[in-house]
């Protein structure tokens, strides 16, 4: 079943992330929407070989991709930094069973943030991942984002560990109101 195809804008660095996910054989993508992920979400929906699931809360995605791995499929979760705290206890599933896991996280609450309510979780994101046993990458350029996504998939699925790639707010652009 081929869904409607999607084309990235010429200057959209998320095209490199999408290529890396395809090269690594991702078959399931779970997400809580974020504007910074919008084109990547559309690209995944437009790909007939990636099964996309929209979540009500991010912790569902941790369990969902663990289930996918049990069934032999590779996955990725897209979320915003404010969702990381929602996952903390569910991350114990990854550590307790040695599940591979990759998440790409658009950062809020760091670079030129307008909304003070984004600051607490944004500032705690990296530490939260590290304390939950993740390898953490931080991408400040589009080129890094693509390379780190490919590396994260290999670390996770070849070396059985959870990996988070933080897409910095400086890269994404601070939100204007």
């Amino acid at each position: 079943m081929k869904a409607e195809s999607f084309s990235f804008a010429a200057d959209d660095w998320r095209a490199g992330i999408f290529t890396a996910l395809k090269q690594q054989g991702v078959q399931q993508m779970a997400y809580v929407p974020d504007a910074g992920h919008a084109s990547l979400i559309n690209a995944c929906h437009g790909d007939g070989d990636i099964n996309c699931t929209v979540l009500t809360t991010e912790e569902e995605g941790v369990a969902l991709l663990a289930g996918a791995e049990l069934g032999g499929q590779r996955g990725v979760m897209l979320m915003q930094s404010s969702g990381v705290g929602n996952c903390v206890n569910m991350f114990s599933l990854l550590k307790s069973c040695g599940f591979p896991f990759v998440t790409l996280v658009t950062m809020r609450g760091e670079w030129g943030e307008f909304n003070p309510w984004q600051m607490p979780m944004g500032q705690a994101t990296e530490e939260t991942f590290k304390r939950s046993g993740f390898v953490v990458y931080r991408a400040d350029t589009g080129e890094d984002a693509a390379a780190m996504t490919g590396s994260a998939m290999r670390l996770a699925y070849d070396s059985n560990c959870p990996v988070a790639v933080l897409l910095s707010q400086r890269l994404i652009g601070a939100k204007d109101f």
């Binding site: 369990a63 663990a66 289930g67 049990l70 069934g71 569910m90 114990s92 599933l93 307790s96």
Partner: peptide
């Protein structure tokens, strides 16, 4: 453990 995750885990497995 992973309380609250059983149904979601089932979904990922069912899709795979």
């Amino acid at each position: 453990g992973a309380m609250g995750g059983a149904a979601s885990m089932g979904l990922g497995l069912a899709l795979a």
